[in-house]
């Protein structure tokens, strides 16, 4: 079974990328969180397949941590926060579904062209994971820019973080366990704090639309 997981590496990679691409034209909060969970689980399996392929024992705890924290805890935490805040199921965006998808695909194609010129592409542990990581992080940035509600921006940040986790896998592979634990804790704390803030925003302004957050000007 373990060997099968290693063989399925390209499938995990494709799921990891497609979850972030599909997130862009998704405007239902639950669907968006499912896509994030899906992306995180694919990332965990990707790390697991790396661990099997390279016989790297230290990657197993990382895979388990990713699966537990990003695949289960964070989506559950956010689902709970959104339910408690009474926010609308429908999320706000500056673009409709079709243009959102078009912009994302165009951005990913540009990323694919640019990545060939990166100096570290040749020396990366896995060229395709390197591409995926940058593509997913980029999709996260696009989501933060194009979306107009606090929940989508939060999920955008989480996609960026997933992209960076994959980037670390593609470049240096080995990060000390203590640092990994630190990064997981910080991400979990950041998300908890963002969830709390989004709840307060919803409570104070009666909407999660970021258009209401334009009080502070010069």
């Amino acid at each position: 079974m373990i060997a099968t997981l290693a063989v399925l590496e390209p499938l995990f990679a494709v799921v990891f990328l497609f979850a972030s691409v599909l997130a862009m034209p998704t405007f239902r909060v639950k669907s968006l969180l499912r896509l994030y969970a899906c992306s995180s689980i694919a990332l965990a399996l990707l790390i697991f397949s790396f661990a099997v392929r390279d016989a790297s024992g230290h990657l197993y705890p990382l895979a388990l941590g990713t699966l537990f924290v990003k695949g289960l805890v964070i989506p559950a935490l956010l689902t709970n926060a959104i339910r408690r805040s009474g926010a609308s199921e429908r999320l706000q965006s500056s673009l409709r579904a079709a243009p959102s998808l078009f912009v994302t695909v165009a951005a990913l194609l540009v990323t694919a062209l640019l990545i060939q010129h990166l100096p570290f592409a040749a020396s990366a542990a896995s060229a395709h994971v390197l591409y995926l990581s940058i593509a997913v992080a980029f999709a996260g940035i696009l989501m933060m820019v194009l979306r107009r509600d606090v929940f989508s921006q939060m999920v955008g940040f989480l996609f960026i973080e997933n992209g960076i986790a994959a980037f670390s896998l593609a470049t240096i592979v080995v990060i000390p366990v203590a640092i990994e634990v630190g990064i997981f804790s910080i991400v979990l704390l950041a998300v908890s704090m963002m969830a709390l803030l989004s709840h307060k925003v919803q409570e104070l302004y009666g909407t999660s639309d970021t258009a209401s957050l334009r009080e502070l000007t010069d």
């Binding site: 921006q153 803030l197 307060k200 957050l213 502070l216």
Partner: peptide, 14 residues
């Protein structure tokens, strides 16, 4: 938690 403090905090953390 009022008068733009939440807006400032949201921009800050994000």
């Amino acid at each position: 938690a009022k008068d733009g403090a939440l807006e400032a905090a949201w921009k800050y953390i994000l």
